[in-house]
Design a protein around this nucleic acid. Sequence first.
DNA 1: CGAGAGTCCTGAAGGC
DNA 2: TGCCTTCAGGACTCTC
Length: 278
Amino acid sequence: MPELPEVETTRLGLLPTVLGQRIASVTVRDRRLRWPIPRNLAKQLTGKTVIDIARRGKYLLWDCRLDDARGYLLSHLGMSGSLRVINADDENLLPQKHDHLDIGFDSGVTIRYTDPRRFGAMLWIAGPLPAHALIDALGPEPLSGEFGGAHLQAAAKGRSVSVKEFIMNSQVVVGVGNIYASESLFRAGIHPGRSAGKVSRPRFVRLADAIKYTLQKAIDAGGSSLRNYVQTNGELGYFQVNACVYDRAGLPCRVCQTLIRTFRQGQRSTYFCPHCQK
DNA sequence: CGAGAGTCCTGAAGGC
DNA sequence: TGCCTTCAGGACTCTC
């Protein structure tokens, strides 16, 4: 499932193919995503040139222009989505069951959006600014200088919610999904069930550093995922072979050999080492 | 405002 | 073999 590293990997994979390229056609096969694909999306995109693709959290913002007309394709991969590059001479050009949208370019290349569970999004933001309710209230980027222990502590003041759910809240910090939340808390030595408001400043500093480390390492590795992530070139993504705790319930901790435990938080599975995390 | 539950969806996995 | 149930997950949305 795409987390921030996969989204960043996707962005980097798309850039050399689509930058400066004009969109020749848009084919929508199934509008039913997290929100319906707007009926005017194809009309808005066709003829425009992609100037840039920026990332905000797990959203991608495709900056599209045609003369003075400007707007942004706002895309999200949900949990099973992928965007891949298909060249005109590729085999298997025929769309498969869950290939919901194609963006064809003058160059002959097609960007194909696939999303079996349809939790993703493809929306259109009209105008010169990438402003949209879905991204306007987002917290800082985890890899930016803006994000650190001080930010976490300030945002956690008075909050009783568990620290794991806290760091998964996109208004606190973007891009920390279920896998990396458990992994980061393990690295920081913090029990996931602890109240966010009761975590000390030094431990928040450790946690922020752990989040940065975990995400950066995954980005460097080219993105990791569990099952059905597909990189932009169509190759399977890296499997999550390096997880310390995620999906390792009952297996020995890689540090202390204590058995990893799991429990539910906010309808999500959490994994932790009862010895290493307090 | 915060906390917690509900919601969308499909495919994998487990039970019988 | 095949049907039925349960679970997984991002993150918005609703309720209290």
